[in-house]
Structures are given as structure tokens and as C-alpha cells.
Design a protein around this nucleic acid. Structure first.
Lengths: 151, 151
DNA sequence: ATCGTAGTTGCAAGGAGTCGCAACTACGAT
DNA sequence: ATCGTAGTTGCGACTCCTTGCAACTACGAT
């Protein structure tokens, strides 16, 4: 069962159109789990819909984000990346700025930070999806990180 | 005593030139504490050096960052901001995405997160200077945040 | 003081992302 | 099935930031 149909239904339920462009973009997001830049989405999607325009890709990704179908986040490098939204799986990423390796950071440590911020400052931080760059153990001169590779 | 002279000396000690452009840019960073976008640096500095070119500003800020005179960071909005580097004062920012208000988050909670990541994953995250967006107490419908206003 | 040269600049072109508009079309009503 | 219309697209122009290059110059050696 394709995963894009319920997502398109979500759009439709919000009064938004299920255009071929949006369909193919959502399909690619389903087929290529993990983070995708807009450019990559464009390249993947335009194989199936050659007349697709890059401006449409950006707009569609923004529409999907606003519709909470997709999560968009800015990496510390200043790149915007997109990922299908999985609200029940709150996770973060550790990304090595030297080798590019990436690991999943499970939710609890960041949740503790969130709690501390809420309690001490009554501030509600957007901490659903963090990408933290740094150096992995190997590049920093040590052993392998212990968490799972990112997916 | 102007703060820009020792900073320019730092550049010089690294084999880099103390040009008038760099001087005026560093002066503005000293006079205008807090976060500055490249555009704002450009506007401030070009009052003193009208022929200054925006490309030079970007390059100079990057040079200053590489020389560890300046900290550069990408906000969750995707904007790059710069701040004089003060390694002995490790701090972070809470910025309200609705009202734009900004508060300082002192170091310890993030340090605890860092320790947890290092211990569990042998990953050394870049956590010297975080900007966390979210909703302040007022915009989220509560009382005022308790930490100091950002400076 | 002059000189040589490598670091740096201004400039124009280029790339990534955004925006406004005319043309197109998804889709609910009939 | 057709129709009307508001949502959406492709396109070209625009903005912000980056890049390559010729010209300039900071500065160490003399």
C-alpha cells in the first residue's frame, strides 16, 4: 500500500489540491526516507514528471510543511532539509562535519533540555527535530559512536 | 581602549592583513554587541567606508570566523548571524518566533546535553552557541520568561 | 626610503531560492 | 456530462549570497 495516498488525503482534507506535481513529490518523500533537500526532491521527482518546475517544488514542500505532512528544518550549515513527519517518533540527528556520518540521537536527552528550559524560563522551544553537527568519535580521534546510523 | 586593535592583532598574528575594510568591520562588531547579520554589518560599516563592497563584508566575516575572532551561526530561520567570540562566556539564546523577543539561556542545561551526547555516543557536538526558537511564555499564553534579556 | 609579492579588494557574473503574474486545472456543483 | 472558480503551475524577473578575476595594496625585506 503506497504511503502517499493518505498524505495526499491529508492535504485534500485541508482544502488543498491533489495535483500531479504534489503527488509525485510526496511519492518521492515516501520512497526516499530520511532528509532530502529541495534540490534532491526536484531531481528525483522530475524523473517522473519532466516538466516539473523547481519553484513548484519549493512551494509544494512549504505547503506540505504548513500542512504538517513534512518537517522542515535548517541545518547548522544553513541548508533546509525536509523529512516526512512522524510525530510519534521524536528523534534528532548527530552529523559529523568532517566525514558526513550521521547518527540518530533518541529523544530523551533533548526532552530533558526542553523540560529544563520550560521550567526555568517558561519558554517553549521548538525541539522536535534537531540536527547537531560536531565531530564523531572517529574524526575526533576515538571509537565509533554507539547509537544507530541515521535513516 | 578600543576593542578592535587586539582583534586585528589576532588576524595579523595569523598572517592576515589589517586592511581598512577589516578594521571598520571589526570596529562595528565591537560597537554593536549582540548578533549582527552580514547586511547589518555592511550598512553600519559603509557609513565609515562608503566604497565598501558587500562581497568584502561576507568574505571578511568568514575570515574572522575562520580566525576564531567571530562566531557565526545559522538561526532556525536559515539566517546567518555573527557575534564577537567570547569563549569564556558560553551562552545560548531563546528567541520567540512570534514576538521576536530574545532571552539568554545560560550554559549549564546545554552542557548537560553535551555531556549526555559525549557519554552515550562519543560524539562531540558543536554546542557553544545555540539559538533555539520557540514560543515565549507571553506568546504561548503564560507569564514572562525568567532569564535575562539577550544582549 | 623603495620594492616585490602574496593577500585582498571591487566588480560583474553566477547560483540558490523567492516572488508576481498569466495561464492552467482540480474538483464540487449541477 | 459541463461549468465556474479558486487553487496551482510554469516562467521570468528578482534578491541574497558566492565566486572568479584583474587591479590594488599591506607589509616585510632591503
Amino acid at each position: 500500500m503506497s504511503c502517499h495516498l493518505p498524505l495526499l488525503a491529508t492535504l485534500h482534507a485541508q482544502g488543498l489540491r491533489r495535483t500531479p506535481q504534489r503527488t509525485v513529490i510526496v511519492e518521492q518523500l515516501c520512497h526516499n526516507r530520511g532528509h532530502l533537500t529541495a534540490e534532491r526532491v526536484f531531481r528525483l521527482a522530475s524523473r517522473h514528471l519532466p516538466a516539473l518546475n523547481i519553484a513548484t517544488v519549493y512551494r509544494t514542500l512549504e505547503t506540505l510543511r504548513a500542512a504538517q505532512v513534512v518537517t522542515a528544518f535548517v541545518t547548522p550549515d544553513g541548508l533546509t532539509e525536509y523529512e516526512l513527519r512522524r510525530p510519534e517518533v521524536r528523534h534528532h540527528h548527530l552529523r559529523c562535519r568532517r566525514c558526513g556520518g550521521e547518527w540518530v540521537l533518541p529523544g530523551p536527552p533533548v526532552e530533558r533540555l526542553r523540560s529544563q528550559i520550560v521550567n526555568a524560563h517558561q519558554f517553549h522551544p521548538d525541539l522536535d527535530h534537531l540536527v547537531l553537527t560536531g565531530l564523531c568519535a572517529k574524526c575526533a580521534g576515538g571509537a565509533t559512536p554507539r547509537s544507530t546510523q541515521a535513516g
